[in-house]
Design a protein around this nucleic acid. Sequence first.
RNA 1: GCCCCCAUCGUCUAGCCCGGUCCAGGACACCGCCCUUUCAAGGCGGAGAUCGCGGGUUCGAAUCCCGCUGGGGGUGCCA
Length: 469
Amino acid sequence: MVISRFAPSPTGYLHLGNARTAIFSYLFARHYGGKFILRIEDTDRERSTKEFENMLIEDLKWLGLDWDEFYRQSERFDIYREYAQRLVESGHAYPCFCTVEELEEERKKAEEKGVPYRYSGKCRVLTREEVESFKEDGKPYTIRFKVPEGRVVVFEDLIKGHIAINVDDFGDFVIVRSDGTPTYNFVVVVDDALMGVTHVIRGEDHIPNTPKQILIYEALNFQVPKFAHLPVILGEDRSKLSKRHGAVSVRNYREEGYIPEALFNYLCLLGWSPPEEGREILSKEELISIFRLEDINSSPAVFNKEKLRWMNGVYIREVVSLERLVDEFMPFLESAGYKVDRDYVKRVLEKTRDSFDTLKDGVERLKPFFAEEISYSEEAISVLENETSRAVIESFLQKVQEVELSGEKVKAIAKEIQKELGLKAKDVWHALRAVLTGELEGVGVDILCDVLPKEIVIKRMLKALQFMG
RNA sequence: GCCCCCAUCGUCUAGCCCGGUCCAGGACACCGCCCUUUCAAGGCGGAGAUCGCGGGUUCGAAUCCCGCUGGGGGUGCCA
């Protein structure tokens, strides 16, 4: 069976890049009917927080991901301790008593000499007696993995292909910190092996770590999994997508009114493309059935907010059901301070969902449907100041009294007024629009009248007349 | 510095493995027209890539080989 995992560290909000990694890893597992594991990598006790962990989980669920197993590394320290012990006993690792200061010194010297830095291996040659006596003195120590010399680690990456790295490039690395907590390169191996992970799917920034991990797999006699390193996501300036590029967390997009399925869909298209050309709007189910690691592009992709926006619009106007859209939209109306009836919102959205790209934009555009009081823009005011506008409004008020209000009716009335007053269609509509929406652009006056209660329409007319004095 | 990865329209990409059907296809954005009471949406059309550069191999290269350049990533008692 295929087993993949997503292993975020709870040190911040779920980043778009990580979200995409999670999605690919998830799609892969589901495609093969395998298992998907979520593992919180919180071995760095300094930077990890429970709050971030909760938000990570919340965001992953919001995106539509689910997992079969859940682990938290901070709860598995006993396991790591045991395997670290084994490595020491088998001679693959050793205690190192060097202080941070000493190491800093080594690094500085290397830099001055212009040679690439790697740990000197000083403590590698400590005798048993020396080690014992240091320990008795209570000297803090780390445990380092002994990197074999002259070894070239080779692996076939499922995305990048053949990769060979000479491990002489890095020195013995720390697997257990002086405070007893294990480090990433070590725990990731122990966990992936123990959890039976068959495919390690992660960002390409992990490629340099891979040989170190393979060395540990071997030392522990674990079976080495397959690796698939995803290209990174870049910002507009082609550097790794980060906070300085603006909104880069899943949460940002959630708050801006993006539909989770749209974000999910868009993220999939960064670095991956469906085998069937031309179809880009794909549901989670479709993605699961067609997703293959082989179709992942090996070059980095620039995140394009415009296209995400467009895609979100597609989801709003034609993909999600009306009920779903209402559910998604309600919270945005509430946080904008509108107290409205769900049924009313549904009637509004049914006619207007094709005119905005994000829920937040929707709130703005649909203001005339929800706001108690509307305010006039400068352009609207200048229209209201037109002599003809008063006549239009007065006539409209009179004609609307005896009829049931609807978009069709309003069209008929507008035409009548136009004829009676000898105006251009534009003049009539502009006046009505200014009165009803306070703007000269936006939703159609007819659809506005289709759902807006008649008394509100009348109220706005009267208010306008009053405004005109 | 050293190590690693990458390179097709502005952006995401198809094609590259198995050279010719590619004077390179699709999508977003852009431009124009249509629809129209406005803005969107929608429909139709357009512009946009000498396939990073230079060498090879070949009758023929975006596709194979080599070099260069550019970009990105890594180089932690972070993950």
